[in-house]
Amino acid sequence: MHPFFRWIIAVALLGAAVFWVVTIPGDVDEEALAGLEGDPTRGEGLFWAAGCANCHAAPGAEGEAKLVLAGGQKFPSPFGTFLAPNISPSEQGIGGWSLPDLARAMVKGVGREGEHLYPAFPYNSYDMAEMQDVADIHAYLQTLPPDATPSQPHEVGFPFNIRRSLGGWKMLFMREGWQVEDDLTDEQLRGRYLVEVMGHCGECHTPRNALGGWTSDWLAGAPAPDGKGRIPNITPGGLDWSEGDIAEYLKSGFTPEFDTAGGEMAVVVESTAMLTDEDRAAIAAYLKAVPPVEN
């Protein structure tokens, strides 16, 4: 064989090996999790802060029905359509999932079979969740009604259907720390946890590049992923509401002009309405500390 071809093969093998290594799904510290006891009452509050029901309830579910996490809502995107899975405590859902299973999914984006999950599931936000909070959510999820609806496959074409390649996505785009690190008050720190982690606000409000990674314009607004309308800029450069206005919007859905939230945000307000006044005020305080982006 010509030495040149040997080189090609060697480089290709090396490339494949590097790809294999960097795309190995991450893991969680099972020993640390073993010592945690989940508190379902605390978990209920975190469940609303994390907005689980907003995506995982059946399409069109309202009120109590939002607690049946049967899945089936569709999320169209430039990469294909993602279908929220059943995460109710049933065989078809996550009934048999241990705490490390849930933690691996939420903070590492790895499913129970060790497969990479698509970032339509906001693990790039949940990655910094406190393990006690994950344990509390895990405990609360077990108390919800089981549902036997089978999860449906995502409608995603080549090359995005190669799960292993998501390891590359994670290497390129998983964040490595807080988005806002300036001197923050205790209230703003609480708000940061609610916005950057649990509430995963950046998943919709931060623009993405062609491969779906966040740009540096944190919370600066973006086209809606389904192509209809625009998700607003909620940095101080785009949102001039007072902290009281923001907190009221997250509680009742009313804007300062007494119009209301619509579309996806009306769904989000259904869960932020369940937070405490202190937490909504903390979110507002944090949003004022975000670097302003004018656009």
Partner: peptide, 20 residues
């Protein structure tokens, strides 16, 4: 106010197109 907001939002959520 919570019920009012919920009622307004309940309809706007599904029956109002997003702002352009």
């Amino acid at each position: 106010m919570g019920d009012l907001g919920g009622a307004c939002g309940g309809c706007h959520k599904v029956y109002r197109a997003p702002e352009e």
